[in-house]
Nucleic acid binder design. Structure first.
Length: 506
RNA sequence: GGCGCAUUGGUGUAGUUGGUUAACACGCCGCCCUCUCAAGGCGGAGACCACGGGUUCGAGUCCCGUAUGCGCUACCA
């Protein structure tokens, strides 16, 4: 039997990184076992579901390279089947009509309400089987329904016994029936509830392995009960440890904002493969400890057995721009940027330059080689794709900013540079051919002639040519920027030496 | 309130059948390299393996208890 797994998000917001990880693990498992990976949008909550959210989920998965194998299933389209299943159980006496009037619940105090009710029930001595309608005769139940009295349909959970299932991650699980209420299958308005819908859809889609967040672990017992009532085979389950915020609390948009949204990583210059790689390491690790893994390696190494049982903390620091997300994610991204094949990096750099009006059509043709060399030179110290248009701007445009600190440190510090740099420009102008080696020879000779340290000229040049205090080897920079631009920029710096024009004492 | 799950350095993890100086990665610090910053190389700080009891010659690994965190407990998903 080929394995069939699914990712089943509800489209009530952006794609959460925890959900993205679930999608990834399902996808990896499907590939690993040669099975199918399906996508189901759980849009039964029509109030909260939006098309925009559905689009963002699909986009996010595309970005991560998680392709699904069959048509997307929209859960709302299956409501009739869910209802039919509930009615079938009703007919068979495995479910019953509950005519208790629907109680209004307040989302904000729901947890407290649950605890309060539990306490009250325990004081009264009532239990999960105390519903007065549980044992109503079929005839009377039918009569009241025919008379138009509203009712919910509840599963009739047996008084004695236990449910069992073997979770692939958490091991054998069992739960006494007495702990499980007669769960509602159908609301009084006739709409199916989550636990029913998932089960029916999973049966319908032929799902063999349900891989999802640990928050569903205890609900699984209820679902097992539904499978059994329906006489359907129960799939394998594998629950994934949750991803927590640094304070070990729940990672949520309301509290933590955009760090939890997958699209943030796309928008802030992550390489999809890097983020995917990072995500794979949250709650899972390959047996050999190797952490930088290609997609193929990920598929090869992936196994449910190596999934952790304890929750993983997504380690970012709020209100700290430098550590806005997990440092390991940032490191992983830089690792990919500086080591991945240039040809693969190129389209991403192109998109980034384009978005900032730094792209020139020649980069696709005559200047393609130049672009690849420039990328290779500057990517060594970049962390995100954004750096190509940010720190890297001076390589693609003459219109770039000077960092005040760099100007102070490398230019204003020594007034002699005011004459030295233009003079160096004159030497460069006569250097032929002009390349990294000749630029170095020229500069060092010039330094000697003028009895100054080469470092002074090198650092001054760096700031003149790139606006920055840090960057690649300067001779490589001269070479990549070329003779003309190097000379121009060395000559153009008069204002920086003027104290009145100071950028402020940084 | 009940039930469940978890607990190895700041973070991610390895440590699958009890015997290790508790390993690796990120981060942090230092040195080398050097025109700067990275990268790279080398080294370092940082964990009484949540706590308390057992079992055992021996426990991060097994058992019991406690604490803490999280989850579920809903006519939410």
């Amino acid at each position: 039997m080929t394995t069939r797994v699914r990712f089943a998000p509800s489209p009530t917001g952006y794609l959460h990184i925890g959900a993205a990880r679930s999608a990834l693990f399902n996808w990896l498992y499907a590939k690993k076992t040669g099975g199918k990976f399906l996508l189901r949008i759980e849009d039964t909550d029509l109030q909260r579901s939006t098309d925009e959210s559905t689009r963002s989920i699909i986009e996010g998965m595309e970005w991560l390279g998680l392709t699904y194998d069959e048509e997307i299933v929209f859960q709302s389209a299956n409501a009739d089947k869910h209802r039919a299943a509930a009615y079938k159980l009703l007919e068979e006496g495995k479910a019953y009509r509950d005519f208790t009037p629907k109680a209004e619940r307040n989302d904000a105090t729901i947890k407290q309400g649950i605890a309060d009710r539990a306490r009250a029930q325990s004081a009264e001595g009532t239990d999960h089987r105390s519903n007065p309608f549980r044992d109503l005769s079929p005839e009377e139940s039918q009569q009241r329904a025919d008379a138009g009295e509203p009712f919910a349909v509840r599963l009739k959970v047996a008084r004695d016994g236990k449910t069992h299932f073997a979770d692939q991650v958490y091991g054998p699980q069992e739960r006494d029936y007495s702990e499980i209420e007669d769960l509602v299958l159908l609301r009084s308005e006739g709409n199916p509830l989550y636990n029913l819908s998932v089960v029916i859809d999973d049966i319908e889609m032929g799902i063999t392995h349900v891989i999802r967040g640990q928050d569903h672990l205890t609900n699984t017992h209820k679902q097992v009960l539904i499978y059994e009532a329906l006489g359907a085979p129960v799939p394998e389950f594998a629950h994934l440890p949750l991803i927590l915020a640094p304070n070990k609390g729940k990672l949520s948009k309301r509290k933590h904002g955009e760090v939890v949204s997958l699209t943030t990583y796309r928008d802030r210059g992550f390489v999809p493969a890097a983020f995917r790689n990072f995500l794979a390491l949250l709650g899972w690790a390959p047996s050999d400890g190797k952490e930088v893994l290609s997609l193929d390696e990920l598929v090869q190494e992936f196994s449910l057995e190596h999934i952790h049982r304890s929750p993983a903390v997504f380690n970012f620091q709020e209100n700290d721009a430098r550590h806005w997300t997990d440092e390991k994610a940032l490191w992983m991204n830089s690792e990919y940027i500086r080591t991945m094949p240039l040809e693969e990096l190129l389209p991403m750099v192109k998109a980034e330059l384009r978005a900032n009006k730094l792209w020139r059509e020649e980069y696709d043709e005559d200047d393609r080689e130049w672009l690849l060399k420039a990328m290779d030179l500057i990517r060594q110290r970049f962390f995100t794709l954004k750096d190509f248009s940010g720190q890297g701007r001076a390589y693609f445009s003459d219109d770039f900013d000077f960092e005040p600190a760099a100007v102070n440190k490398n230019l204003r510090k020594d007034p002699n540079l005011q004459q030295l740099l233009p003079a160096l420009a004159d030497r460069f102008d006569e250097t032929d051919p002009f390349n990294a080696e000749t630029a170095e020879a020229t500069l060092r000779k010039f330094a000697e002639d003028n009895n100054v340290k080469a470092g002074l000229l090198i650092n001054g040049s760096r700031t003149m040519l790139t606006g920055q205090a840090v960057g690649p080897s300067m001779f490589e920079v001269f070479a990549i920027l070329g003779q003309k631009r190097s000379v121009e920029r060395l000559r153009s710096g008069v204002p920086w030496f003027d104290a009145a024009n100071a950028l402020g004492d940084v």
